[in-house]
Design a binder for these strands. Structure first.
Lengths: 292, 292
DNA sequence: GTCGATTACGTATTACGTAACAATT
DNA sequence: AATTGTTACGTAATACGTAATCGAC
């Protein structure tokens, strides 16, 4: 029967162009490869090469075979990773999130309720990556800003986050009770990096603005005090801040400035995560953010 | 590295429940299986079983592994079939069609233009089957009643077919110039079997009618002459019939009674099929149907 | 006692290596 | 002369078989 090593050999030949070079890469001899491929053709019941005296080239069937086999080999490697990650998930809670706030909250909760588990987190604004990562057990839990309606997963709401614009009292927008992205489109805005999907919201909603992206939180906070530039805050980070007389926080009314986070996990992991919703209800964000 | 035979062994254990029974089925000894599975666990770097002194049971990782491996093994078998069918397609034109008329036409055309090729045809009203069959090269050409918009396939229109109701002159509906399915819903109608998707159209559009399905064409034709029952004809079959004074053919106006057939094939097979459109334009259906 | 699993050790299959050869560049 | 692929035959890795042991029902 056909085995993976034969497929890998065929793929190597396709990539290297000749038997000899493929044999070198595979660390076997040319004659060994010759016979191995002959067996493969016998087992498949199909001719894969056009053989001239001194030259072998893949025929149409061979090209198709290589194409399919590359996928099969990839699938096997994917399986191995998946199984290893799945076993890891017994000791490690791996969180993938579209935004930073859920990570802060989840770390805080797990450190209290599952302190025997290690915790790892990844911020990724690409939703497809997160979903794929959940599927192959790279993540045991992902957080998106919407539920995921799939048979094998469960989605539970965690908490919500609303965006505010923070400006000095003298700023022209400071008099408004609420504003929209349009009102500040074009103005320079201070922005923290590593804020997940919020970044893409900003790029999309205030495309004319110059986003002064800051890597360092300390620098960012310094700049918000020292400059008259507007910056974004959220309902979460506001809870941690002491009342700041020098800044006025104005809620953004656009629906994009409002996020409800959902924890999404494999149904069989419900015993680990189903109570998260409840935990978030009693969460003291000030305490959470002080420890980040 | 992990090979298919190891996966097949694990799957056998999962199905049989014990090592011993699995070993019997695999025609190897228990000790051989024991070590093989141990190697598999080593290679994967993962524990698949919970081992009690006298009992082995799959743990969660093991169950997941079996699930994935079943798919991988299936994919390999699928590949083998696909390659064999692909090689066959060099000698055999395999047609899958949603209706019989395109098969008649295609056979006729290929017998003239590609008489060195064998021809095989399958009537299947399940569109997904046809598309799947095209994908895995079970069919070199499929015929649907709509084009298929996919990157790797090409769709070309072949011809159209319209449905008529055939009734004796004394029939209450005989006076109409055109009718709709609704007009005859509830009446008994003679119907040939093996008419592909037309059958499903009838079931859907005249659900209250009693469909008197006939397997045999001779019997069907006899009944259309001997009885006063209405029956369906199509623009294609009408071209083959001699003028029949005893039946009046009324076109159906519903869009469902109108079909445009599309030939769909892998782009790389264009050299075989791209001229079909042109061939159908000059096709003498009377001749075609006489030879069926 | 039977059945299921593991370990130890010998056997056999088969993938691989070496050598020799033919053909193309 | 150098490179590519095939055939013939010997070698070695490894999957498998046999025998023996342990525990559970």
């Amino acid at each position: 029967m056909i085995e993976y090593y034969q497929m890998e050999q065929l793929i190597a030949i396709a990539q290297e162009g000749t038997l000899s070079k493929a044999a070198q890469r595979l660390l076997i001899s040319q004659p060994a490869l010759t016979r191995s491929i002959q067996h493969l053709e016998e087992d498949l019941g199909v001719v894969l090469f056009e053989r001239k005296k001194n030259k072998m080239t893949l025929n149409e069937t061979g090209k198709l075979a290589v194409e399919i086999m590359e996928k099969l080999v990839h699938d096997r490697d994917q399986m191995i990773r998946t199984l290893q990650l799945f076993e890891q998930s017994k000791f490690l809670i791996s969180i993938g999130s579209c935004a930073p706030a859920p990570i802060w909250g989840l770390r805080h909760i797990f450190q209290e309720t599952a302190h025997e588990m290690k915790i790892k987190d990844t911020l990724d604004s690409n939703e497809e990556n997160l979903i794929q990562g959940l599927k192959n057990h790279e993540y045991s839990l992902i957080v998106l800003n919407h539920p995921l309606d799939k048979e094998s997963y469960e989605s539970i709401p965690l908490f919500e986050e609303n965006l505010y614009l923070s400006v000095p009292p003298a700023h022209p927008l400071a008099m408004f009770k609420e504003i929209s992205f349009d009102d500040l489109n074009g103005q320079s805005v201070l922005l923290l990096s590593r804020i997940g999907f919020w970044n893409e919201i900003c790029v999309k909603k205030i495309p004319k603005s110059h986003l002064l992206i800051q890597e360092d939180v300390q620098v960012f906070q310094e700049l918000t005090r020292a400059s008259a530039l507007p910056n974004f805050k959220s309902s979460i980070t506001l809870q941690a801040d002491p009342e700041n007389e020098n800044r006025i926080n104005i809620p953004l009314i656009d629906p994009e400035a409002h996020a409800v986070y959902y924890g999404i996990y494999h149904k069989k992991d419900a015993y680990l995560f189903a109570s998260l919703s409840e935990h978030f209800r009693h969460l003291d964000w000030q305490k959470v953010i002080q420890t980040t």
